[in-house]
C-alpha cells in the first residue's frame, strides 16, 4: 500500500540523542506509527513488522498503533538511522532532502528488523563497543 511518510522528533528519541546505542533509542526510531484503519487494511497488528520502501531502499520497522493522531494514508517514523536508511538524498538544489511528505510503499513482512549493528555495517561503518 502507498502511504505518505512523515519523519519527526519524539520525546523518547530526543531523550536518547546522546545515548544512541541504548535499546530504547533503537526501539523508538525503528517504529512506524499508523492509523488503526490502515493497519486493518494492511493486515498488521501492533508489534508486527512492515517493510517500508521508497526510492533508495527498504527498511523493516515495527508497527505502533497511533489511534486517530495519524490520519489514514499517512505514517510517522521518528528521525534516526532506520528511516534515514531509505530517505532520498536529492535536495532539489535547496540543501534539504525530503524528510516529510515522502511517498512510500508499505507491506507486512516476517523479515526481522535489522539491528543497529547490521544497519551500520550495511553502510560500511563499524560499531564501537562502549565500555
Amino acid at each position: 500500500m502507498r502511504f505518505i511518510l512523515n519523519t519527526g522528533r519524539t520525546i523518547v528519541q530526543g531523550c536518547h540523542v546522546e545515548d544512541k546505542y541504548s535499546e530504547t533509542y533503537a526501539g523508538e526510531v525503528s517504529t512506524c506509527r499508523m492509523n488503526l484503519l490502515d493497519m486493518l487494511e494492511l493486515g498488521v497488528e501492533e508489534g508486527e513488522y512492515v517493510s517500508v520502501t521508497c526510492g533508495s531502499g527498504s527498511v523493516v520497522l515495527k508497527v505502533v498503533a497511533a489511534g486517530e493522531a495519524i490520519p489514514c494514508g499517512s505514517v510517522f517514523v521518528p528521525y534516526g538511522p532506520y528511516i534515514n536508511h531509505i530517505m532520498p538524498e536529492d535536495t532539489h538544489s535547496t540543501g534539504m532532502p525530503d524528510f516529510k511528505s515522502v511517498v512510500v510503499v508499505i507491506t507486512p513482512t516476517t523479515e526481522p528488523r535489522k539491528t543497529l549493528q547490521d544497519l551500520i555495517e550495511d553502510l560500511g561503518g563499524r560499531m564501537y563497543e562502549i565500555r
Binding site: V17, E18, D19, K20, Y21, S56, G57, Y79, G80, P81, N84, H85, I86, M87, P88, E89, P97, I120, L123, G124, G125, Y128, I130
Partner: peptide, 26 residues
C-alpha cells in the same frame, strides 16, 4: 550518520572522518 540519507553516510564511510563529540553516536 543518524540524520542524513544513507547515500551520504556511505560516502562518510569511505573517506577519512574525524569526529569531535563528547558521546559515542552513530
Amino acid at each position: 550518520a543518524a540524520h542524513l540519507p544513507s547515500k551520504c553516510i556511505r560516502h562518510l564511510a569511505n573517506i577519512p572522518v574525524v569526529q569531535i563529540d563528547p558521546y559515542p553516536n552513530m
